[in-house]
Design a protein around this nucleic acid. Structure first.
Length: 561
RNA sequence: UGGGGUGUCGUCUAACGGUAGGACAUCAGAUUCUGGUUCUGAGGGUCGGGGUUCGAUUCCCUGCACCCCAGCCA
């Protein structure tokens, strides 16, 4: 059972069979074809990982190709961010960076071929008329009155469309297929539309732009793609994909559809994500609450975590909604292995060690990463006045509480055992300070007499602490499937961001780098935000598992009964 | 009610006619200088009904449920 190989998903099996039959001469060539109309999100990462890993596994290649056929939606900014994100994930398209717009002339020439063979015509129906004559799910459409023009007339009109003689929306080039076809995509689909618009890549060279169905299969064909992997909603388009390639008698890649990734409590629609950005519900595409790759990166996610996650979730055809806990598990297991540990106190409570000599301090050894000996050790300053977490003290603790309380002894991580002797309060009864004593014999964290303590808590020396802000993130939405709401904005979680100022951090944290995720012991993983200046800001990537919170919950629900 | 897809633990995903397995989640326990990590264990599933078969998640029939399609978006 140790040597069981991972089961192969349906796409791998299809390729296995193609390699046996020699369908593509044992070649495997995939592509990741984003439209530059927004930032990439975790759903795209599934496609990226799939396409690049398939190519890698079979010794093939994977292209990065921008499907930039709609200048109205596309922007240069997005082509840069998309490349950065794919690289960050760790994939390399080598010299194969392509644009659909690089093929515009060739795509146009192919359209001429189609016109000449009598399989396409220039239609002068308005968009509304096209819609009305398309029929519906149970009724066939009606043929366009322009359907049977001569080849010469079509050539003339199409050339003039290209030359800019007609306004937007006045004419289209349509494939002559079957207005009664049960598949709506086959009811004389539009091939070219007139769009007098500036294109990020081709400028004003063109005023007609190809539709997705025309462009995509031809791009795949031109690039010699073997397996064109796309999401389920394109299943209905496959007959058209094949029809075009067959009509043109060109090389035919194989389109295979798989189920895209969905994650609970978030949205995976570029349109909706853009709305969050445009309406300032988040700080930008890279807001750490966003499911975008740039957001996850800023949050402190690692490429390895995302790739491992994709490896775990599999590839199939059934619609799915992954639970966020699965992603977070992949994250934490990656971070646990590679993150250095530090101590930081988010909600400080002052502790005075009354028997520690005044004015003195010392340095204590702390392990950087118990999971990785090579990470070494560091020294943390200790002194008479410290900060501990407010949650780590209870004046009247329940039996299962292992932390500090009046008369109780706990271990300060990597330091000493301390016992709480006195609780100092202000006039309102709020606890402001604890007076404790330490046992000098327990330096380093162990008692020579062998006595044990139940709890170990983290701390920071008051004198040496640096201040910093911490941003605690929670899920962006309150409901499992926000996109299904009439108005998804209403499902936004009002508590998705909590900022804590003046947290107390061990001095070593002054040197932490942006983009490197570290663990604040007992709290979670944190990553320094680019907004940081002299005052560091840390984003909480993900909290650590908190089994005390679970016990506390049980205690409370038990109390009600 | 046309066409195209999909139905396996709560959530993902295997099993390709031969003991329904794994992961996450949940619960219980052990270990631990992080109530982290690690380890052990438990509960929990084949959409329904027929049929073929020694044997069906798998094949056949028949229902049912869910998703996608009526952009000059991709």
């Amino acid at each position: 059972m140790e040597n069981q190989t991972k089961p192969r998903h349906f796409i791998q099996r299809i390729i296995d069979e193609d390699n046996i039959s020699g369908k593509f001469e044992n070649r495997v060539h995939t592509r990741f074809p984003p439209e530059p109309n927004g930032y990439l999100h975790i759903g795209h990462a599934k496609s990226i990982c799939l396409n690049f890993s398939i190519a890698d596994e079979f010794g093939g290649k994977c292209n990065l190709r921008f499907d930039d056929t709609n200048p109205i939606a596309e922007e240069e900014e997005y082509v840069h961010s998309i490349q950065a994100d794919v690289k960050w994930l760790g994939y390399d398209w080598e010299d194969r960076l392509y644009f659909a717009s690089d093929y515009f002339q060739q795509l146009y020439d192919y359209a001429i071929d189609l016109v000449k063979s009598g399989k396409a015509y220039v239609c002068e129906l308005t968009p509304e008329e096209i819609r009305e004559t398309r029929g519906n799910l149970k009724e066939p459409g009606k043929e366009s009155p322009f359907r049977n023009r001569s080849v010469d007339e079509n050539m003339d009109l199409f050339t003039r469309m290209k030359n800019g003689e007609f306004p937007n929306g006045s004419r289209t080039l349509r494939a002559k297929i079957d207005m009664a076809h049960p598949n709506m995509n086959m009811r004389d689909p539009v091939i070219y539309r007139i769009l007098h618009a500036h294109h990020h890549n081709t400028g004003d060279d063109w005023c007609i732009y190809p539709m997705y169905d025309w462009a995509h299969g031809l791009e795949d064909s031109i690039e010699g793609v073997t397996h064109s992997l796309c999401s389920l909603e394109f299943e209905d388009h496959r007959p058209l994909y094949d029809w075009y390639l067959e009509a043109l008698d060109v090389y035919r890649p194989q389109q295979i559809e798989f189920a895209r990734l969905n994650l609970s409590y978030t949205i995976m629609s570029k349109r909706l994500l853009k709305q969050l950005v445009d309406d300032n519900h988040v700080s930008g595409w890279d807001d750490p609450r966003m499911p975008t790759l740039s957001g996850l990166r800023r949050r402190g996610y690692t490429p390895g975590a995302i790739r491992n996650f994709m490896d775990e979730i599999g590839v199939a055809k059934r619609n799915n909604v992954m639970e966020m806990t699965k992603l977070e598990f992949a994250l934490k297991s990656d971070l646990n292995k590679r993150s250095q540990r530090r101590m930081a106190v988010l909600n400080p409570l002052k502790v005075v060690i009354t028997n520690y000599p005044e004015g003195e301090d010392e340095l204590l050894d702390a392990i950087n990463n118990p999971e990785d000996e090579s990470a070494g050790k560091r020294q943390v300053p200790f002194g008479r006045e410290l900060y501990i977490e407010q949650d780590d003290f209870m004046e009247d603790p329940p039996k299962k509480f292992f932390r500090l309380g009046p008369g109780r002894e706990v271990r300060l991580r990597y330091a000493y055992f301390i016992t709480c002797n006195e609780v100092v309060k202000d006039e309102n009864g709020n606890i402001t300070e604890l007076k404790c004593t330490y046992d000098p014999e327990t330096k380093g964290g162990n008692a020579p007499d062998g006595r044990k303590v139940k709890g170990t808590i983290h701390w920071v020396s008051a004198k040496h602490a640096i201040n910093g802000d911490v941003r605690l993130y929670d899920r962006l939405f309150c409901v499992p499937n926000p996109a299904s709401k009439e108005n998804f904005i209403e499902a936004l979680n009002p508590d998705s961001l909590t900022v804590i100022n003046e947290c107390k951090m061990e001095p070593e944290l002054a040197h932490s780098e942006i983009g490197i995720t570290i663990q604040f012991e007992r709290l979670g993983y944190f990553c320094k935000d680019p907004d940081s200046n002299d005052n560091p800001i840390f984003n909480r990537t993900v909290p650590l598992r908190d089994s005390w919170a679970k016990i506390e919950k049980q205690l409370h629900s038990g109390a009600k009964n």
